[in-house]
Each structure stands twice: as C-alpha cells, then as structure tokens.
Design a protein around this nucleic acid. Structure first.
Length: 496
DNA sequence: CTCGTCC
DNA sequence: TCGTCTGGCTCAAGACGAG
DNA sequence: TGAGCCGGACGAC
C-alpha cells in the first residue's frame, strides 16, 4: 500500500512539511480514519498465546474472532477521550487497475499458508522429544500466521455495527477508503485524514496524520504532514506531485527499473509532467518502459477517484449518544466481553463525547469561509490534466547539485512566497484541482494553516535543516484560524 | 518498566 | 569515484494495567 | 505489508 519510499523523499527534500504534534492539538478535530487498515492491524496484532502454541486472535466462546472489535472499541474511546472525533471510512470495490497488486498479495498469502502448514507439521513432529525444534517451529508458525491474516467482509460489518452502536459515524466509500478520506478532508468535512497510507496525499488530503494510534505520550508523537507545505517545498504543482508518486511506484503501476524517488523528482522537475518524462525515457532508451504502460489510467485513478460527494455526507457525520443496551447486548452477550469492562467503557465514552463536542474557536471561521465559497464550488468538468501547467520553476542547479541544494532552493523559494501571504503559500490552488465530483473550492479548504504558519518558521532558519526532529516552536504569528488551534483558549480570551 | 491479559 | 537503485534480510505491526 | 539496514550493481560525472 502506498507510494514507495515517499516518506524518505519527504524527509530528505521537504522535511518541514512534517510536523510533530500531540494529541492535545487535535482537540475537537474531526478526523477520517481508514477502517480497513485499522481492522487489519488489529487482526495481526491483537493476539494471545496459550501454552506453547502459536498465538491466535481473541475469540468468543463460539470461536468468532473479536480482536478487531476489542481494538476498535478501545482505540476509539481513547481517541475521543482526547477530544478527537473519528469518522471511520470503509472500502468499497477496489479499482480494477489494482487487481495486479491484489493478486500478488493473494499469492504471497497462499504461499505463507502452505509454509504455515509445514511449520505446524514440524511442531507436531517435534513433540516433546525435541523442545528446541518445537520452539523454533512455533516461532516460525507465529510469523506465518500473521502473514496469512485475511480480513473478511464479516469483520468489516461487525466493526460498522459496533461503531454505530457507539454513536460514531461510519462512511462507506464506493471504492477506495483513502480517496474518500482525502475528499472529506479536502472539502473541510473533516480536518485531516489519519492513515499510514501515503496514497492519501495523492488523493489530495491537505493534511495527513500518521501514527495516530497508541496511548497518550507513551510512544511516538503524531506526525502531521501538510500537503500545501509539501508541494511548496518540493516546488511542484499537485499534478506534478502525483506524477512523482506514480514514478516512485504506487499500487496501480509497476515502478520502472532504475527510477527511484530521487530520479522521479528530478525528471518531473525537468520535463514538467509524467507523459513528458515517459516520452523522454523512451527516447533515451536506457530505462525500459513497458509497451502499454497505463499512465493515463493511473493518473485518472488519483485525479478522478471514485468517491461520494463529501457534501452529501456532511450532515450524516455526527457523534450521537451511544446505544448502551445495544452495546452490552452485542459485546457482552454475543461476543463474550466482560460486562464490567464494557459498562465502564461506555461511561468513558459518554464523557468523552462531551469533550470532543465542544466547539473549537476556529469552527466559526471555517463556517464563514465555507458559506462564501459554496456557490463557487461548481466548476466545470475536470480538465484532463492540464499538461500546460508550467513546470513551476526548474532550477538547473538542482539537477547538478543533488537533493540537498534542490531542497534548499525550494525551501527558500517557498518560504519567501509563504511569508508574503499565507494564501500565496498554497501553490496555485493546485491542492484543490478537484476531481469531477469534487465540490471543493479553494476557499472551502479551511485553515490551510500549516503552510501559512510554518512559512515564517522556515524563513527564520537560515540554513536548511534536514532532520529537524526538534524544531523551535513557531512564534505566535498573525491571527488566523490555525493560530487558534495551537494557542487554544488563552489566545481566544485575548482576542475577545 | 515488563509482562501477561483482553475474548 | 559517488550517488542511486535494488534485492535480500529482519522485525513489528494494540491497548491496558497489575505488580 | 513497510520500513530500516546492507552489500553489490550500475550509471553519471
């Protein structure tokens, strides 16, 4: 899943697009979560071992798997206790161009299954005689079992049922959940998409949250990746960014031998767009490009992804009171959960709902902007990717001097643009080069904050910092909606 | 903090 | 020679609380 | 499955 090595590329060439944030900063935020990935990770991780045997998922007495329910239940409550308002987005039908990728995964899974059976046979054969061999076989079976984890439709349906009982909104995407998450974020229906899948950036989410898992500060901080900032620092338009990602290797298209992230970026900067890059590669003849290499279709999947118009979902995305009796009946009676724990959790959930429901100060601004933007939203049918889009600026130096210089140049250019006006930092409104269904208009993307906010920060740093793990806090800058986010209530009071 | 439990 | 890509390898992918 | 690490291949300079 995702774009190969994209995170590395970002860390090398646009590190400032990634910000470490705490859960506190997500208070009151609506966040779209890819449900399938979440469920899958719970199925893999939530296991329990019993005396010597390889670990297995949690189950009720009837043998039905409950790991995903346990995981979703506790994580959702935990998030809501921090004031996060999660929306779970479920996959629909996968696009046909993905079938190659899916077939590959299926094959790998079947192989793992065969290996697993072999390992299990070895466990049995080793018996008590050879404790050493048995232990080894168990360890191997353990790993293989995780590789054979297969998510079933029933798991998804059960998760939906649980979430609905909890009063947490569920969205059923027509196709890929990632695309729907991005559309929701782009339209401002949610504040960000939370997923590990970097594809979501290609689908145009203005904000991507990674590592929104885990409890409190116990582990790693959450990463917020800003798309406008990323584009500015890379010096790419949205279209060009997608081009780079496709060249790096995505689920839809085999990557080209000899082209990695560095060359992908270099090439797109040099030639302007994907079609031109491919053409040049064919002419040069050094990198083999397959005959019917379907770049147009891959482009279409990203630019015109099959999604439900976020505006039609806006009204349904609500956090309602949990159905307490329903939850007890489902989790305790049907799935064998501990009654006390469930009741306790429900109490926490009810309290948590109140916390997340508090209106953020900036919601006022957001709504104002949206109201104005709405009429303008209906744009004409999507242009077939304007190849005419000028290659933003091609520094010939960057090709020569490598990523470091390129990043420096890009960062400098971006920050100077950014300080002039927060809006200008959003490159050409490319972020909202919406798919045909996309209702988003530039102004409807609320609080394109990160670009505006971190631009001054970058300007204040004379030399480019490549692994800026700990950057100084940005000084409070101009008042805009995003400043309210970080400054919270104290700022709000002063503003009064 | 580690380790065992959740179902 | 250096930078970049590749292929093989490994590991870990949850949340919680009792002690 | 992805992400980090590493020895080796290969092309650019």
């Amino acid at each position: 899943m995702g774009i190969k090595n994209l995170m590395k590329l970002i860390q090398a060439s646009a590190p400032a697009a990634v910000k470490e944030i705490t859960l506190k900063e997500l208070l009151g935020r609506k966040v779209a979560i890819d449900a399938s990935m979440t469920i899958y990770s719970f199925l893999v991780a939530v296991r329990s071992s019993s005396d010597g045997a390889p670990s297995a998922n949690l189950t009720n007495e009837a043998g039905e798997v409950t790991s995903h329910l346990q995981g979703i239940f506790s994580r959702t409550i935990r998030l809501m206790e921090h004031g996060v308002r999660p929306v779970y987005v479920f996959d629909g039908k996968p696009p046909t161009l993905k079938s190659g990728e899916l077939a590959k995964r299926k094959e790998a899974k079947e192989k793992a299954k065969i290996d697993l059976e072999a390992a299990q046979a070895r466990i049995a054969a080793a018996g008590e005689d050879d404790a050493e061999a048995a232990k080894e076989a168990v360890a191997e079976a353990e790993k293989l079992a995780k590789r054979t984890v297969h998510m079933q439709g029933s798991h998804q349906e059960e998760a939906k049922h649980l979430l609905r009982l909890m009063g947490v909104p569920v969205v059923e995407a027509p196709c890929e959940a990632e695309a729907q998450c991005a559309a929701l974020a782009k339209a401002g229906v949610v504040w960000a998409a939370a997923t590990e899948d970097m594809d979501t950036l290609c689908f145009g989410t203005p904000r991507l949250l990674r590592r929104l898992t885990f409890s409190e500060a116990r582990k790693l901080p959450v990463w917020e990746i800003s798309l406008p900032k990323l584009l500015a620092d890379l010096g790419l338009s949205m279209d060009q960014f997608v081009d780079v990602c496709i060249l790096c290797g995505c689920d839809y298209l085999e990557p080209l031998k000899g082209i990695g992230p560095v060359k992908a970026l270099e090439r797109v900067r040099k030639h302007g767009d994907l079609a031109a890059v491919i053409e040049a590669l064919r002419e040069e003849g050094k990198v083999p490009v397959p005959e019917g290499y379907p770049i147009d279709e891959a482009l279409r999947l990203f630019h015109e992804a099959d999604i439900t118009d976020p505006e039609t979902l806006r009204g349904d995305i609500k956090w309602t009171a949990p159905d307490e009796a329903g939850l007890v009946e489902y989790l305790v009676d049907q799935k064998g959960f501990n009654a006390d724990r469930v009741r306790n959790a429900i109490e926490r959930l009810k309290k948590a709902r109140a916390k997340g429901g508090q209106k953020r100060m900036d919601s006022f601004f957001t709504m104002g902007a949206k109201a104005k933007a709405a009429p303008a939203a209906k744009k004409g049918a999507a242009k077939p990717k304007s190849a005419a889009a000028k290659p933003a600026r091609r520094t010939s130096a960057s090709v020569k001097a490598g990523a470091a210089a390129a990043a420096a140049a890009a960062a400098a250019a971006a920050s100077s643009a950014g300080t002039a006006s927060p809006v200008a930092a959003e490159p050409s409104g490319a972020v909202v080069a919406a798919p045909s269904t996309g209702p988003a208009s530039p102004a409807a993307t609320p609080a394109e904050g990160p670009a505006g906010r971190s631009a001054p920060e970058a300007a204040a740093t004379p030399a480019p910092v490549f692994f800026a793990a700990s950057r100084p806090k940005p000084a409070a800058s101009k008042r805009s909606s995003e400043d309210m986010d970080s400054a919270e209530t104290s700022k709000a009071k002063r503003a009064k």
